[in-house]
Write a protein that binds this DNA or RNA. Structure first.
Length: 258
DNA sequence: TTGGGGTTTCCTGGTT
DNA sequence: AAACCAGGAAACCCCA
């Protein structure tokens, strides 16, 4: 075997590792503000040791059952492979109790970049009501994971400051005010009186948990937080399961006062 | 550093 | 039996 070929084979793994580590450093160094300001992505002054690290081999792996949301928010969806997209769909079905039968998986045999370029209508075509929900989850990851929009006008969600609310009741209110985007998690029972129903309790909890970067959130705990609002008049009791009503101190939910 | 608001976590007991 | 409701207690986190 020629010497140059031996050398090439010898250094090939090293090159692959170098490429991976460079890519990882680039991704890790990215922050939302970096992209929002349209400035350079990488810190140009990375040392060799920062790039190569030590000798351990920490190639990325994804166990969507155990890593929960962390993997999907650690790498921007645009960088997902076809396999990642497929795993993400499976993860969403498991995590949010979506009916996989609704999903036309052939429509999702695409890269992360192509996924990100899909419109809400295309999601609907590909997965019906689940598509609406998947679209919402994806936008949420793009906004709150390692998301980096170059243009804040890019989505309807950001236009409405959707999910920017700091309090739980505002988060709930804003979901109710965007029925086309909340995936049927919440719905009005009596719009005029501010009475609403939680349709998918655990999905709501997961979404709130995602908002707070807390994958241990449950409806049990979320509902405890909602019950605290009875004291402050943000919510009023409705003696029906999963039904709540906005109180006199809640604002922004009335149709004529938005 | 501290104190308060707003949860989050855990719990017991009750209801649907 | 599972899911939900009620509310006490304490921990936690963030912000001013």
């Amino acid at each position: 075997m020629p010497v140059y070929l031996k050398i090439t084979l010898l250094i090939l793994p090293f090159h692959l590792q170098l490429m991976y580590r460079c890519l990882k450093v680039m991704l890790d160094s990215v922050t939302p503000s970096t992209f929002l300001s349209n400035t350079m992505v990488c810190d140009p002054l990375m040392s060799w040791t920062e790039i190569f690290g030590t000798t351990e081999d920490d190639y990325p792996t994804c166990d969507h059952q155990t890593d929960s949301d962390s993997f999907w928010t650690s790498i921007h969806p645009e960088h997902w492979s076809k396999h990642n997209v497929c795993e993400w769909l499976q993860f969403c079905c498991d995590q949010y109790k979506l009916d996989a039968n609704c999903i036309s998986f052939s429509h999702f045999n695409i890269s992360g970049l192509q996924l990100c370029n899909m419109t809400q209508e295309e999601f609907l075509d590909a997965a019906g009501i689940c598509g609406e929900y998947l679209y919402f989850i994806l936008q949420n990851i793009r906004m709150h994971g390692t998301s980096f929009f170059t243009d804040l006008e890019e989505t309807k969600l950001s236009n409405k400051d959707y999910l920017q609310s700091s309090h739980l009741w505002e988060f709930v209110r804003d979901l109710l005010l965007s029925p086309e985007e909340n995936g049927g998690i919440l719905e009005w029972e009596d719009r005029g009186q501010g009475i609403f129903r939680v349709v998918k309790s655990e999905a709501l909890a997961k979404m709130w948990g995602q908002r707070k970067k807390n994958d241990r959130m449950t409806y049990e705990k979320l509902s405890r937080a909602l019950r605290y609002y009875y004291k402050t008049g943000i919510l009023e009791r409705v003696d029906r399961r999963l039904v709540y009503k906005f109180g006199k101190n809640a604002h922004g939910w009335q149709e004529n006062k938005i």
